[in-house]
Design a protein around this nucleic acid. Sequence first.
DNA 1: ATTAATATTTAGACATGTCTAAATAATTTC
DNA 2: GAAATTATTTAGACATGTCTAAATATTAAT
Lengths: 221, 221
Amino acid sequence: MSVELTATEENYLKSILNLSLQADISVSTNDIASILNTSAASVTDMLKKLSQKELISYQPYKGARLSEQGYKHATSIIRKHRLWKVFLYQSLNIPWEAVQEIAEELEHIKSDLLLDHLDAFLGFPKFDPHGDPIPNAQGKYTLRAQSPLSDLQPGKSGLIIGIKDSETSFLKYLSEKGIGIGKSITAFEQNRYDLSMTFHMERKEITLSGKAAQHILIKPL
Amino acid sequence: MSVELTATEENYLKSILNLSLQADISVSTNDIASILNTSAASVTDMLKKLSQKELISYQPYKGARLSEQGYKHATSIIRKHRLWKVFLYQSLNIPWEAVQEIAEELEHIKSDLLLDHLDAFLGFPKFDPHGDPIPNAQGKYTLRAQSPLSDLQPGKSGLIIGIKDSETSFLKYLSEKGIGIGKSITAFEQNRYDLSMTFHMERKEITLSGKAAQHILIKPL
DNA sequence: ATTAATATTTAGACATGTCTAAATAATTTC
DNA sequence: GAAATTATTTAGACATGTCTAAATATTAAT
């Protein structure tokens, strides 16, 4: 059915999808380059190639956007990535901050049979350990009401359901503070001076920078 | 510690190890080419490169053999391959004949952390579903008394512990006959005319060609 | 011990994905 | 709206792993 792509091509598609979720419309060469840590010239080369394969539409100087096919392919990579994350975290007990990097390799394993069996083994999970939704085999996925922890008003509580930024150092930082998916947290006060916020979690007081709080996602309780 | 190798380099090392187990001493260019389904010229190119990296010793026209480092690396790939096989077969219930191909992709995933956790998750298995021994993290592995099913004398029984040939069509053939690791089988008679053999297994009568019986490994009971 | 057959290597080419430097287009700024 | 800045593309190069065809070694046969 679908064409075989190299891991590199898949990474480009994934980046384009991620970027187009934030700022819809087409995605710029430079943005892709900075996400993939490569040069703009390399990105141009690859965009031409992906366009050739009809996985994206691309106009010189005007950026790229996923075609129907490209979108499907990108979604399937996201599905693989997140299912592997669940496995690594829940089944293998690999520390949270190490999961991302390993999943980035595993997501390029080709077999559909493998993915379907993994999905079944894990009990068809709907969300990964970072709280991101897992597309099903047809590419559909559940969205949820979620808001950044920074929006939580003093006195109100929320359930931590996801982390927006998957950078290793950030995840480690959170993990050291005891912050993780599934924990309840209550806003206490906001410091006007530096915009840091104080919370209560499991009878402890936790202070986070405004930026950190923006990257933690909660379901209001 | 160890150098990072590409999947291709790893496949060459693995092939050299497999070949040197059968016919010790050095391994010929052509044999490697035929196992890897590539041209002899490509093999020569790669042997030079691996020799450069001191993973093998290589003399033009004289073949190659693994160095200490190369042997270690090759063994670690075998370990990965077999651990993944156990996972695919036992945990995910992926059909026996599909396992080989998927494991061939998974064996090149880099993370040692992942492998150690997988090993623990599986309970530190000593053998894979084809009955082959799994090297431990230090590269040591258990050997076993084993003999081909074709050597089993009429009236005697054995426990199936491995399959020598991992070709998909052969595995499928066996799987259709109900033959698999861990089953008990009893020799009944040998047909002098075509050298086929008849066995009893789980109250059924099974006939196998002499060649097939040579490729099934048993532990005599 | 030559000749014939086989195995291996060299030479030169190609595809993929990358890069730097230079050229060109688009956007901002004053 | 012309000049300066920023973004993007082109040109030309390189590394990796592959190939075919030709050259050279090795081994087998008579």
